[in-house]
Amino acid sequence: MKNKVSQFVFFAIGILALLGVLNSPIALLLGFIFALIFSHPYKKESQKTISYLLKIAVVGLGFGMFIKETLETGKEGLTLTFFSILITISLGILLARLLKIDLKLGHLITSGTAICGGSAIAAVAPVIKAEPKTISIALGIVFLLNSIALFIFPPLGHFFNLSQNEFGLWCAVAIHDTSSVVGAALGYGDEALRIATTVKLSRTLWIIPLSILSMFLFKTKGEKIKIPYFIGLFILAILINSADILPTIITDNIVLISKRLLVLTLFLVGTTISFADLKVTGYKPILMAVILWVTISVFALVYITHF
């Protein structure tokens, strides 16, 4: 009986997300509540679905962008992206040693903070031959901070009187995972969403040099580096939209569906966070992740508003 109730609630909230009834923070919050009250009926399936839905949604958002604006945005965020990654990785290596955290766990947390959350962790983990439990802990911590960011960044953006351009840049650099970056920007405005998506995806390409660096740091060889191929589809979607190949009514609807898929993705993210795993880790990995996050958030904010 309990399983049937959990299935009903799970699908009911999912349908509400797809119908556009829920916004990003509410969908994520309902995911948390669901995880606390119910035993997840489709946990493994949800974890796999999150990755696919996010990629489909991001590619769909490309149909609302134009190549000229995208190139300008990517160029604008390049310097900030480089320095933020450099600072995060350097500080992460130092903190892992100072706090005496397992070096592989520390590196995964650092990778997730520096580039793109769960995607970076998933890419780097096999390269450094991390254990499943270590991967799970790193993902849990990064997803928890992502979730907090989704709630606090939009109010902070308004508090600091950030323009949509500035907010899009800030959340693309300071929020770990693409789902939360897009979720936060979604409620701030269309321009913020466009900028945040573009800068975040260009940032994702840094997975490749990070994976190579990880090989040298942990002296591993022969492991495959995962290249985020869906970024190519995102660029293709932008090119199709820029060339006016499809009618506006079609591209507008693709973007609308993509936004709703993102809200559904955030609900699924909330349902898969394991508070039990986070409790077992102790405070040091979480402390490390928070220090990295606050450092990069403050650095990015100062850079955007003063340079």
Rank of each mutant, 00 (worst) to 15 (best):
M1H: 13
K2C: 00
N3A: 10
K4T: 09
F8R: 05
V9M: 06
F10D: 09
F11E: 00
A12E: 02
I13P: 03
L16M: 14
V21G: 03
P25Y: 10
I26S: 05
L28T: 10
L28F: 11
I33M: 14
I33T: 15
F34Q: 09
A35N: 15
L36K: 13
L36I: 13
I37N: 04
I37Q: 04
H40V: 08
P41N: 08
Y42T: 00
Y42P: 00
T49M: 13
I50F: 13
L54M: 13
G60V: 10
G64E: 02
M65L: 15
I67D: 03
E69F: 04
E72L: 15
E72A: 13
T73Q: 05
T73N: 08
E76P: 00
E76L: 14
G77E: 08
L78A: 14
L80P: 07
F82I: 15
S84Q: 04
I85S: 04
I87E: 00
T88A: 11
I89F: 13
L91R: 12
A96D: 07
A96I: 03
L98R: 10
L105A: 06
H107S: 06
I109P: 13
S111A: 15
G112K: 03
C116R: 02
G117V: 05
G118Y: 03
I121Q: 01
A122K: 03
A123I: 11
V124A: 03
A125F: 02
I128C: 06
A130P: 01
A130R: 01
E131D: 14
F143H: 05
L144Y: 01
S147M: 14
I148S: 04
I148Y: 06
I152E: 01
P155S: 10
P155N: 09
F160S: 05
L162D: 09
S163W: 08
S163N: 10
E166G: 06
G168T: 12
W170P: 04
C171D: 15
C171I: 15
A174I: 05
H176L: 01
H176P: 01
D177T: 11
S179P: 09
G189C: 11
D190N: 14
E191Q: 14
L193I: 10
I195L: 08
A196G: 11
T197F: 01
T198G: 01
K200V: 03
S202H: 03
L205I: 05
S211G: 15
I212E: 09
S214W: 11
S214C: 12
K219S: 15
G222W: 02
G222Q: 12
G222E: 09
G222K: 12
K224M: 10
K224W: 03
I225Q: 14
I225F: 09
I225K: 11
F230M: 09
F234P: 04
A237H: 10
S242H: 12
A243Q: 12
I245P: 00
P247S: 12
T248E: 13
T251M: 06
I254L: 06
I254F: 03
K259Q: 13
L262C: 11
V263H: 12
L264M: 10
L266M: 13
F267S: 01
G270I: 08
I273W: 04
A276G: 01
K279T: 07
T281I: 14
G282A: 04
I286Q: 10
I286T: 14
I286R: 07
L287V: 05
M288P: 05
I291Q: 07
L292T: 03
V298W: 05
V298M: 11
L301M: 13
I304V: 14
T305K: 15
H306G: 00
F307E: 09
